[in-house]
Design a protein around this nucleic acid. Structure first.
Length: 419
RNA sequence: UGGGGGAUGGUCUAAUGGCAAGACAGCGGACUCUGACUCCGCUUAUCGGGGUUCGAAUCCCUGUCCCCCAGCCA
């Protein structure tokens, strides 16, 4: 039931698009996905994406898939797969039956690649990495067609089969989409869609020695899973052209759309997986869950609650402009959440022994104080008091300097009886 | 420089041609046996220049600045 006095929170631009798609009948059910590559632990930036994707699904009675984008066996491992699942669950989200892996689709992806070759829309290119870069041109100069661009369908089919069968060495060639080497969008200059990698995959073992590239794999995985709204970060805006090209060229029955939002940045901290990995590998930190890092596991170890992280993601919003959030906003979200029901504890950080001379020498009593100003139901705090006690040193110092406002009150000082 | 995006207080986000709003930070005050919390009050913004309009953050033109793309990474 909606309270008429409290207008609903305005929808961000992605939720607006989804609301319109629902209203127009373009979609009747919403399917999103969170697609991490299992090459590291999740961090607070991923939490933003998780809250967005799972949140949207939940709000619209849809589903959100957890899909591991595992197309680069050189960097991925099951350790990360497990850690990521644990963190998403801990954050409070559930993918139900929809735990997927891009590697589940390797057969279908291979079929689509063959189909592209048969359509004359993909070719095996023997340019090495350096030459390919040379041929690609620059931001201001168009690229040149690869000398292998016009190979026959039969030749391409045979060559691609050789790639698949492990008859060609890593790096000797790649399968490329035949798009447009003069496109002003660099990504459209015949992007590689399959490369040879003689590496065991954490799930498929040594079944494959060719692996699909992101631009080819992601859109088709979305299509296979019937994703309606494929939400990613801004740096993939240029890639959307390839995303659309692949699905349009293959004329797939399902047509997901990609939307991009600004990734989360937090001042004075590192967020990139590459840098976090470096901190871990070079032992600058205690591991992925070092509380000094903004990984989900680090935040958990530091005492953050799932609700505080969800509230934080809700607070910062979703937009398209590059933004840098103050660390204080994150910290505020835990304090806010913890303040509600966290029991209070008294401690003396810099104890200074004192003797209260007009207090009976042997007397000792237990004082009681309200534990929570806004929650009187919470059990009261009890602490001992005696003639010989501990005072918090900075308190004394401040008292001497007279920086306390008003006159000192008995209860103002943190006291503790030495044992 | 070609292309793709973006510009609202110190920071983030609203306002979708009709009173520039909220959160965080900051400042002042109240309350306090947590310098916390809570409460009250305050400061601070539409990138610049033109135009359309009764009316522009919003629409048009123009300029400036910022981000992304030249991996067989994602």
């Amino acid at each position: 039931m909606t309270n008429i006095d409290t207008p609903a929170k305005p929808l961000d631009f992605i939720r607006q698009i989804i609301a319109e798609d629902l209203k127009s009948g373009k979609h009747s059910n919403i399917v999103t996905r969170f697609p991490p590559e299992p090459n590291g632990f999740l961090h607070i930036g991923h939490a933003k994406s998780i809250c967005l994707n799972f949140g949207i699904a939940k709000e619209n009675n849809g589903v959100c898939h957890l899909r591991f984008d595992d197309t680069n066996p050189g960097k991925e491992s099951t350790e990360y797969v497990d850690a990521i699942q644990k963190d998403v669950r801990w954050l409070g989200f559930d993918w139900g039956e929809h735990l997927h892996f891009s590697s589940d689709y390797f057969d279908q992806l291979h079929e689509f690649a063959v189909q592209l070759i048969k359509m004359g829309k993909a070719y095996v290119c023997h340019l090495n990495a350096d030459d390919m870069r040379e041929y690609r041109g620059t931001l201001t100069e168009p690229g040149k067609d690869s000398p292998y661009r016009d190979r026959s369908v039969e030749e391409n089919l045979a060559l691609f089969a050789q790639m698949k069968n492990g008859e060609l060495a890593e790096g000797t060639c790649s399968l490329r989409a035949k798009i447009d080497m003069t496109s002003p969008n660099m990504i459209m200059r015949d992007p590689a869609i399959y490369r040879i990698m003689n590496k065991d995959h954490h799930r498929t073992g040594d079944t494959w020695c060719i692996y699909p590239m992101y631009d080819f794999c992601h859109c088709l995985s979305d299509m296979i899973e019937q994703i309606t709204h494929s939400i990613c970060t801004l740096e993939f805006e240029n890639n959307r052209a390839v995303y659309d090209w692949v699905l349009d060229t293959l004329a797939t029955p399902c047509r997901p759309r990609q939307y991009e939002f600004a990734r989360l940045n937090i001042n004075f901290t590192v967020m990139s997986k590459r840098k976090l990995l470096q901190l871990v590998e070079e032992n600058h930190v205690d591991g992925w869950d070092d509380p000094r890092m903004l990984t989900i596991s680090g935040l958990r170890r530091r005492g953050y609650t799932p609700a505080s992280i969800r509230n934080f993601c809700d607070t910062i919003g979703v937009g398209k402009r590059d933004s840098w959030i103050d660390m204080g906003v994150l910290e505020n979200s835990v304090r806010d959440d913890l303040n509600v029901d966290a029991p209070r504890v008294m401690g003396v950080l810099n104890p200074l022994k004192i003797v209260i001379t007009n207090y009976p020498e042997e007397q000792e009593e237990e004082l009681e104080a309200q534990n929570h100003p806004q929650n009187p139901d919470m059990a009261p705090a009890r602490f001992p008091s005696a003639g010989r006690s501990m005072l918090n040193a900075p308190t004394i110092w401040r008292m001497r300097r007279g920086s306390f406002s008003g006159s000192p009150r008995v209860g103002k000082y943190a006291c503790a009886t030495p044992t």
